[in-house]
Design a protein around this nucleic acid. Structure first.
Lengths: 217, 217
DNA sequence: ACACATACTAGTCACATGGATAGTTATATA
DNA sequence: TATATAACTATCCATGTGACTAGTATGTGT
């Protein structure tokens, strides 16, 4: 049994290595990235495979054969989004300063990067609203998203508390929950307006509230 | 000119009075209410006219002739939602107590009424997310919604400040903005889970934060 | 009882949807 | 250069969409 399996695996790896096929018009990475932007802007149900073909260069044939169809491509977009979000955009400040947290909110309303897409809110929030709780695959991604944001704020506030930046009875977990709600609200606000700047007042207010948490001993 | 207009108005009123027609299976009010529940749960693009017919009793014929089609019915649903929301559910506490505001958030996570629909979040938030900023009619309703909530919180906090419940340098407008973001976040959280109770922790944390605003002179 | 306005049923319409297929073309390896 | 592999183009398909149209049923005021 073991030998049979090893032979099969060997064949597979050879098969993968010897690839004498035509190459894709658009490579997988950029394909998923541009699909992501489309889903981000228009949502799932409002985006057709023909438009995907037109605007991304993914032929409807390839969409089926190598991406598995519209839904799988959508899920890949969600995963790609979460990966980059976790790396570059999610709250991740270990410096223990309240300012850094406040800045995170203010930066959301005037982003230096990707202003063309970020004005459509947050892809994952949009998606979980569209699918409600009725799709297991989307649910999984939503769970991951909320976990990233929640734990990000939690870690940030913990660091602040450890440095004595807030009073000793400051409830980290509870205020992380508050920041989570604020982050969601800010992104929905921006999507509703279609402009990042629409969140300026809200971000500023949240930032002020955060700064008021400062320990004035 | 004036007399002509008066004659026309007269005719119209007579025509409206003399109604020798067959009556609808479902009256307009309950029709819109059940349509509202469907849009609330499923969104606009995910709901077909055939399902509307099945579940509300509005025949597809009547949907066209007396409601003007799917989109107009949707807008009527939004308006009906906003009307009842403004009357019964929107933040509207003039008692000047912080507790009342905190309770409003906690009640959202364990509603006494309409638990079957409120677990789908807020119809207007869902809709403005689905349509992004790309539909004028929806935009108008979203504006009305945000205005209701924002001014509701503003009035509530103003009353608290006037009673001396918060310190004199408490920024009402800014904290109203914070509460707006929190309310949005809470509703999105609930929709994402499909259960009202999913917002319990968040609501509780927001409530605690509000109570911490109390003036301890 | 009659007339008439309107909602009803049932069927049709053009169109958009996601997906599938057959034949062609490009490309990386032997 | 020959060949195998896979992406390409161009149709085609079944299904679902919102809207429309005859013909029928029903209720109300004269």
């Amino acid at each position: 049994m073991d030998s049979y399996i090893s032979i099969r695996l060997d064949r597979l790896s050879i098969k993968k290595f010897i690839n004498m096929s035509r190459s894709k018009k658009v490579d997988t990475k950029t394909a998923i990235e541009s699909a992501m932007a489309l889903f981000w802007k228009q949502g799932y149900n409002n985006l057709g495979t023909r438009q995907i073909e037109e605007e991304t260069g993914i032929t409807r044939f390839t969409l089926q054969t190598s991406y598995g169809g519209k839904k799988p491509l959508f899920l890949m977009s969600l995963d790609a989004y979460l990966d980059t979000f976790e790396l570059y955009a999610a709250p991740n400040m270990a410096d223990g300063n309240l300012d850094t947290i406040a800045d995170w909110f203010n930066d959301r309303a005037k982003p230096k990067m990707f202003a063309e897409v970020t004005c459509y809110g947050c892809l994952l929030l949009n998606s979980t609203v569209e699918f409600a709780a009725q799709d297991v695959d989307v649910n999984l991604r939503a769970d991951r998203f909320f976990k990233i944001v929640r734990s990000g704020f939690h870690a940030a506030l913990s660091a602040v508390k450890q440095k004595g930046g807030v009073s000793s009875d400051f409830e980290v977990a509870e205020m992380a929950e508050v920041l989570l709600s604020a982050a969601i609200g800010l992104n929905i606000m921006i999507r509703s307006a279609g402009v990042n700047a629409a969140g300026k007042d809200m971000a500023q207010s949240i930032g002020k509230m955060i700064m008021n948490w400062q320990n004035d001993k």
